[in-house]
Design a protein around this nucleic acid. Structure first.
Length: 571
RNA sequence: CGGGGCGUAGCGCAGCCCGGUUAGCGCACCUGCCUUGGGAGCAGGGGGUCGGAGGUUCAAAUCCUCUCGCCCCGACCA
């Protein structure tokens, strides 16, 4: 491709609305342009990178035996009502209404559609297991689109769905997919980690997210040197060893705490630490009101509570509901006298004696409350958001918390969808049973962003060979110099003829200008044809990632390049 | 949804507080000259309903009201 015939609108300045490097560079290097909030146009160069990722994904998916399909973007609301997600998915699900007034959904994911297909077409265990996948545009009306293509409302995703006769078969495919994902992200040149995750609205229990380690990432990961790693939503840590041993239990007392609602206010007023308080958080979980008890200095992890309660829908109680359930106003709830309600507590509260809790009465707290003596809880479970230096659940050493971009997630769904949607097959025993399912997604567009986030310097992108829009650029320093121009043209033809994807910067621009653009666009190899080396009948071969430059005669250059690539000297 | 910020040429911005010639700067773009190893120089030029609507005023990019869009932060932590 000749630059003069390509459309590569590079920018010297950073766009005003970009925050992270990948976003700035994708705009500056002419990969994308924003249409409206969270919606991007992919320009030719950006599309080529996307297609490179897609190709890797297709190769690896095909290798697992998965079958490519293309499912509709527009779904009838009935399918979503069948699965129950019409009500659960919330505002992220875009719901256009057609001319007949029928409610529809723009697919944010395709469990419903694929389950519908399979329940119609697959009858027997003999046809199982089977996995379908597609690469397609998805819509999620994000509350706050951010970071360019990393969190957009419209994006390209690869999603796959597997159908099995039993859990055992599911687990096998899950493992195969785990392996395929690992190869895919390795081939994309990414440093990443599969981490235990929460399944959110999709459902299921066993699930991993593939996280690309990046400071600009929006997801947080809890990890430990021993190998344990999980998303913040999922990440467990062990309670500290009890320290209140031998502390004398003082008598329960009610104290006046006028207008003091927050942990900080109460702790300050009673001249104690937030950690000596216990927060009593009330939740409405599918019809039941539940109280969660956690230490005053910690935060509740709602995803964990949701898992403990085994519910999909759970919301924090409003002031009114709290009064109704506890008799006291918001800010003064406590476990003492709440026995009629289900109490779930974080084990960390066992470490504290004589703690402060709300008295379920306006302007009063209890002090010196103690577990067992003053109240009992129904269940203990890890409920708090993990914090840096908490002991690892596996080995007890302090964990660390880092950031990442989630590029893929795989789920063992089980029969959640097939049961709700009546997707059944006949087993070997002649009995009808629901399909056991798995689903597996990869954010294609954000993978490209993640690649850039992890592979750039102050001058621009540093494409890994595998996803670079072109593998190399031939850069004639001065196209008005006949010798330089014809040499560059010849190299371009020869390299292209060898099967390489080559960009020829044939623009009549000054050298500095072209060098800057070359660094910005970041193709792995650059062949500079200029006076300096030409004097010796040579051209320069420059490796973008390492900055290494070598000279080769015009005749030898293509061979040298081929060798460099084949020997893995260019990554 | 709450709070904050910003909409002026393709991009990045100044001007607005304190209303008053022809709305400005850098980059980009067009023409010519010159130049050619890290975003050159000179000369000339094109491009704006100042996000939109309404209002105040002799006069509005500037003041007021409404509205749309974009960005950032927060979103029940008892």
């Amino acid at each position: 491709m000749r630059w003069t015939q390509a459309f590569i609108p590079t920018l010297k300045e950073d766009p005003a609305d970009a925050e992270i490097s990948s976003h700035k560079l994708m705009v500056r290097a002419g990969l994308v342009r924003k249409l409206t909030s969270g919606v991007y146009t992919h320009l030719p160069l950006g599309l080529r990178a996307i297609q490179k990722v897609e190709r890797i994904v297709r190769e690896e998916m095909d290798r697992t035996g998965a079958l490519e399909t293309l499912l509709p973007i527009l779904h009838p609301c009935e399918l979503w009502k069948e699965s129950g997600r019409w009500d659960v998915y919330g505002k992220e699900l875009m719901r256009p209404v057609d001319r007949h007034g029928r409610e529809c959904a723009l697919g944010p994911t395709h469990e419903e559609v694929i389950t519908d297909l399979v329940r119609r077409e697959v009858r027997s265990y003999r046809e199982l297991p089977v996995t379908f996948y597609q690469i397609q545009t998805k819509f999620r009306d994000e509350v706050r689109p951010r970071f360019g293509v990393v969190r957009s409302r419209e994006f390209i995703m690869k999603d796959a769905y597997s159908f099995h006769e039993d859990e055992k078969s599911l687990r096998e495919t899950y493992k195969v997919m785990h392996g395929a994902y690992t190869r895919i992200f390795e081939r994309c040149g990414l440093k990443f980690a599969p981490v235990h995750a929460d399944s959110g609205a999709i459902g299921g229990d066993v699930t991993h997210e593939f996280m690309v380690l990046a400071g600009a990432g929006e997801s947080e990961v809890v990890s430990c040197g021993c190998g344990y790693s999980a998303t913040l939503e999922r990440g467990e840590t062990a309670p500290e060893k009890p320290s209140g041993k031998g502390v004398e239990l003082k008598p329960l007392e009610k104290v006046h705490t006028p207008g003091l609602k927050t942990v900080e206010e109460v702790a300050k007023f009673l001249k104690t630490e937030p950690s000596s308080l216990i927060k009593t958080l009330l939740y409405e979980a599918e019809g039941e009101t539940v109280a969660a008890l956690i230490p005053g200095d910690r935060e509740l992890n709602e995803a964990k509570l949701r898992r403990v309660l085994k519910v999909d829908l759970m919301t924090m109680c409003e002031a009114e509901a709290i009064e109704k359930a506890t008799g006291g106003p918001l800010g003064f709830s406590g476990p003492v006298g709440l026995e009629k309600m289900r109490l779930v507590a974080d084990p960390r509260i066992k470490n504290v004696k004589n703690f402060v809790v709300g008295a379920n009465e306006a302007d009063y707290h209890h002090v010196n409350a103690n577990l067992e003596r003053d109240f009992k809880v129904n269940q203990f479970a890890d409920l708090v958001v993990a914090e840096e230096r908490d002991p690892c659940v596996k080995c007890g050493k302090p964990v660390s918390i880092s950031r990442g971009i989630e590029v893929g997630q795989i789920f063992e769904l089980g029969s959640k969808y097939s049961e709700k949607m009546g997707a059944m097959f006949l087993g070997q025993d002649g009995k009808e049973r629901p399909f056991v399912m798995g689903c597996y997604g990869i954010g294609i567009t954000r993978t490209v962003a993640a690649v850039i986030e992890q592979n750039h310097d102050s001058n621009g992108i540093i494409w890994p060979l595998s996803v670079a829009p072109y593998q190399m650029e031939v850069l004639p320093v001065n196209v008005n110099d006949e010798t330089i121009r014809t040499t560059a043209e010849r190299l371009y033809e020869e390299l292209t003829g060898m099967g390489f994807e080559v960009l020829l910067d044939d623009r009549d621009q000054r050298p500095g200008f072209k060098f800057k653009d070359a660094d910005l666009v970041g193709l792995p190899l650059r062949v500079v044809v200029g006076e300096k080396a030409m004097a010796e009948g040579k051209v320069e071969i420059h490796v973008r990632r390492t900055g290494e430059t070598m000279r080769a005669s015009t005749d030898e250059a293509p061979g040298r390049i081929k060798t460099l690539i084949e020997e893995g000297k260019v990554s």
